[in-house]
Every structure is written in C-alpha cells, then in structure tokens.
C-alpha cells in the first residue's frame, strides 16, 4: 500500500499556552513496497508523523492517504478497524504493551480483535513466533517471565500476527544489545522482502538507514528537510551537520581515505570485509606507496 501525506500540519493542544506545532505543511510520498527511513533529531516530529499512518492522530490541516483510506482534517473516520488491521505499528519499547497471561494469547490479541478465526490465528501465532526466532514452547509462558529482548520479540510478533501490509517501526532496536539489534533489523528486512511490505523505519541510526532503506527522509522541526536515496542524502554532509546529524561511519571513513590517500571507492552496500579487500588491493597496487 502506498502512503501519501498532503500538506499535513499537526498541532498539539491548540489554543492553550502549551500549543505546539509538531508537523508543518509536510508532504511525502512513500511508494508501495518501499523501505523508507525517517531520520531527525529528537522533537523533529517523527513520532507524530507515524501516528498519522493509522489515524491515531488526525491532521490539523491537510490529508493523509493510506492505500484507499483518506484521513482528512476535520472529518470523522470510518472503517478505522480495517485501516489499523493493514498498518502494523511497532512502537518504541513495544514490550510495554504486553498484558496477557501467556505469550500465545498476547500474540493472538491483535488478530482476535480484527475477527480472524481461531484456526487461522493459531497458524499466524506459530508463524509470527518463527519470524521473530522464538522457540514454539515459549507459547505457554507468561510474557512477564521473559528477558527484555524476548519480550520485545513477543510484542513484535503480536504486530506481525496482524499480517499488516504497511509495517511502521519506531526505533525498534532501542535498548537492545548490538547483536540483538542486527538480528532484529535483518529480520525486519527479510520480512519486508518476503511479505512485500511497505516499511517505514524511524531511526537515529544512520547505519541502519544506509543498510536497509531505499529512501531516506530527514525531518527538522516538523518540516521535511531532505529526501532521497540514502547515498544521495548522505553526500550532503554539511546540510546534515546543520540539523545535528552525522553521516554513517562507513561513508565518513571512505571520505577520509579519499582525502588521505587519494583513493576513491564507490560504496554500494558491500560488507566491511569486502571493503577492506578492495581497499588493500587499491592501495597495494600503487608503487609510490611503498
């Protein structure tokens, strides 16, 4: 499903001393099946933006289109349920939303609300557990007996079991250990591929944006600051500096190499080992460098 934001403005507590404009005239298009990373400093409006995708927030002015659903300022929304079934949101620290007695029941909670039948739910629970790499015998445990990382996986499985078409991830790896972070991001990427999801990732990690996304949107103070393919956006180092963002370490490194040794290497997502090989062969071939 494709997402379109059309001049969306959102104001918190309008008409009070606490009035705060979180989004301002934001227009954005996310094609169906794409993987879009949304980056911005704290308070730039990222979380506000994603809450428009399943109509948790309604624009103060402008409109949001999600597939065939139109969420417009000042109009009551119908069919919210089917919109929410198709858009799965993994919030920050999703393990805080666990509440059921067993892992199985908690994962089944979403599909049950959307009226999926028992048989199918059981199947979906198993698939979701498999997707987040948890053993099947965990189903009968209480989610509160699990470790933090396992709880996070259960909560994510609960969103996946809804079989959404759009998957929105709000800093899904915050607070996990480095290895867990990578596993989780890889898992989301393979789901993105296999289920043909439209994925929106909110992140602080430039590395993740570079590795997984095919489109990057930079937000600053509620406005769109930049948009484009990751490599194009990350070329504009100075502009990013201005909004307190850095470029990914790999690119920073390659830039330094070019400056120091005059060797320029094109980055197209090659793994670090390959990059190192390329670098040594390029440097080694130069006679004057011995």
């Amino acid at each position: 499903m494709e997402l379109t934001f059309n001049e969306v403005t959102y104001t918190y507590s309008p008409g009070t001393p606490f009035e705060f404009r979180a989004l301002e005239n934001l227009s954005l298009h996310v094609p169906s099946g794409s993987y879009t990373a949304i980056i911005g400093h704290t308070g730039s409006g990222k979380s506000t933006l994603i809450q428009h995708i399943n109509a948790l927030l309604q624009p103060t002015s402008g409109s949001v289109k999600v597939g065939d659903f139109v969420i417009e300022a000042g109009r009551k929304n119908k069919n919210l349920r089917s919109l929410r079934e198709k858009t799965g949101i993994v919030f920050q620290y999703p393990e805080h939303q666990l509440f059921e007695e067993t892992v199985e029941k908690d994962i089944a909670f979403g599909p049950k609300n959307f009226g999926v039948d028992e048989e199918e739910i059981r199947e979906r629970v198993n698939k979701a557990l498999e997707a987040v790499q948890l053993p099947e015998d965990m189903k009968e445990k209480s989610p509160f007996d699990l470790s933090g990382g396992q709880m996070r996986r259960v909560a994510i499985a609960g969103v996946l079991a809804m079989k959404p078409k759009v998957l929105v991830l709000d800093e899904p790896t915050a607070g996990l250990d480095p290895r867990g972070q990578k596993e989780m991001m890889d898992m989301f990427y393979s789901l993105h591929e296999s289920e043909e999801l439209t994925t929106v990732l909110v992140t602080h990690s430039m590395e993740d944006a570079l590795t997984y996304a095919d489109e990057v949107v930079i937000l600053n103070e509620g406005r769109k600051y930049m948009q484009g393919a990751p490599l194009d956006v990350f070329k504009r180092k100075e502009e990013l500096r201005q909004v307190q963002l850095d470029i990914p370490e790999v690119l920073e490194f390659l830039e330094k190499i070019e400056k120091e040794f005059g060797v320029s290497i094109e980055y197209n997502k090659q793994p670090l080992a390959e990059l190192a090989k390329e670098l040594t062969s390029r440097l080694g071939r130069r006679d004057d460098y011995e």
Partner: peptide
C-alpha cells in the same frame, strides 16, 4: 499504551458497556 493497543485493534470508544470495560484491561 492505549495508542499501541488501539493499533492492535482495541476500540475504546464504541461497543457495549461490557466490551468497553474489557477494552480497559489491556
């Protein structure tokens, strides 16, 4: 939390009294 549960299909606003009470548990 209520936003997270609403995203999982809980409806806090409509439905019978019993439905709405049970919607508060999550």
């Amino acid at each position: 939390i209520s936003k997270a549960q609403a995203s999982r299909g809980v409806d806090f606003r409509t439905g019978s009294l019993k439905d709405r009470v049970s919607a508060v548990i999550p």
